[in-house]
Nucleic acid binder design. Structure first.
Lengths: 280, 280
DNA sequence: CATGAACTGTGCGAATATGCACAGTGGAGG
DNA sequence: CCTCCACTGTGCATATTCGCACAGTTCATG
């Protein structure tokens, strides 16, 4: 009777999120039969159905929604705890999680590689995503952010690099369209809506209509391929590639990057080592 | 690597609370060896020690304190969830948790017994304690409270009984000390500090010095035994026993009782049935 | 309407975790 | 200083759980 299992809750949370038992099993890295059994047990203990079973998946009941809330809250709390525990150690070892906006790896990785060589006990987790990671939810130890200075309380923020993206074109494009003097005579290849706050994107939106946009993609490789194919002009960081020609560069396009850590972890040797390596 | 177990956290929480592996094992109803293994696994995954091992028990490290916080928060969230799930059902069955101040069982139990007979699918959990249970933490479905009207938001409060404790004495005591006319000529047997807000206790504190107190005990049976032995006068509810004599009763000693439920559960048939049974 | 894909659900053998017995440890008390 | 006691820690047999294979169901698609 009093037998209680938090792992059953964890399993149910995964099912609630993915909508299917199979998907949850994949996330949890167990067999789907195990997930079914855990949920059966949990429902029996709670005395209520959490899901409406269906041959194509599970949908949440009212009770299931309550579980989703409670489970998600606990998960956030646990991952925050794990990050703080693994972050507050006095030694520079164990896992270190660094998050960044996409497209920084050429800049970031050499420095992090040097850090790893210096401290062989470190395990690096470098994750990029368009969404911002929440340091207080334990999703990262150090975050690299672009744009306005982050103002969240409990975050320690220090300025890092100022980067100026430049406009690039392929040789074939230039041979066909001639040199770039008036931007409105050209078409552009740009990232998705999540990059709209970037300086060069604001400049584009302010100066040219939508008709000048040839392609939108959130995939950097796809954009690069498009530029190489001569579909239009695109912004890259200087030195990112060597087979394209820089055709334009404005001081307005300069963007500030920030190094961000959580106040609880900022003083720890490990986080300090990461920050130093990045500043290096 | 990605293997994670919330049950390990649960085990560590129990150890953090009890201070010993054995105590935790007792609470969790598993063997103490199991608890040791779970904690070893959890610490290995977190890459940090949660406890300082000792032949006499485990003491918390800084990381352990973080775990205690996170684990306790999750546990509270889970039990709240369980209460809401088992409470919001449309049918009157499953577990129902009623909490009350001590000494009410003669009053409460007959009504709850009638409720149970009416709904055989119910499992009753009737818990009394000096501390107040938190309905929003899922510790109870219905609470009986004494004193000032509870004002917590999200609580649905309705007045229940007004009880007036009376002063009782044993025959032996009266034979020795004569009838009670001036209270200051007598000594008293009273409950502990947690009952100080009760009306008759406030009256006592206001009218008589500490010298008139013969005995303090939070155990009702012990107080009753003391009164029966003639150690002094004590307050009881009328009808509680039949071998003692009521010697004094003041309207000031009347105390209001409240029936309290959480707003999320109050409309459910099960909680409504409990409230009706208690009011009946 | 037939086919296929993706999912849920269950019996059975294998892997895993559990309980037990016993050894080891350190502090309290006389 | 010694004994006792409550606790932690570990091999081993066992019980429980897990993964696998396969059956059954539903829905999308041509």
């Amino acid at each position: 009777m009093e037998t209680e299992s938090w792992d059953d809750i964890r399993a149910a949370l995964a099912v609630a999120r993915s909508g299917t038992v199979s998907g949850a099993a994949q996330v949890l890295d167990v067999h789907h039969a195990t997930v079914i059994r855990r949920i059966d047990a949990l429902e029996a203990r709670l005395g209520a159905r959490l899901f409406q079973r269906h041959a194509r998946g599970y949908t949440l009941t009212e009770a299931g929604r309550l579980l989703l809330e409670a489970g998600a809250a606990a998960e956030a709390r646990f991952s925050q705890m794990a990050a703080r525990i693994s972050g507050t150690g006095e030694r520079i070892e164990g896992e270190i999680t660094v998050t960044s906006v996409q497209g920084m790896s050429d800049l970031v990785m050499p420095r992090l590689v040097a850090l790893m060589r210096q401290h062989p006990g470190l395990r690096l987790n470098y994750t990029t995503d368009t969404r911002l990671f929440r340091l207080d939810a334990g999703e990262a130890h150090v975050a690299i952010r672009a744009g306005a200075k982050p103002v969240e309380p409990d975050y320690v923020v220090s300025p890092w690099l100022r980067l100026a993206a430049s406009l690039y074109a392929s040789e074939g494009y230039l041979a066909q369209h001639g040199p770039v003097t008036d931007p409105s005579a050209h078409r552009f290849i740009i990232p998705g809506a999540e990059s709209r706050p970037a300086p060069h994107m604001r400049w584009l939106a302010a100066h040219l209509p939508a008709a000048n946009i040839a392609m939108i993609s959130n995939d950097a490789d796809a954009r690069l391929a498009a530029i190489r194919a001569g579909l239009g002009l695109g912004w890259l960081l200087p030195g990112e590639v060597d087979d394209l020609t820089e055709v334009m560069s404005l001081p307005d396009w300069e963007s500030q990057l920030w190094l961000v850590s959580h106040v609880d972890l900022h003083r720890s040797p490990k986080v300090q080592a990461v920050l130093k390596a990045l500043r290096g």
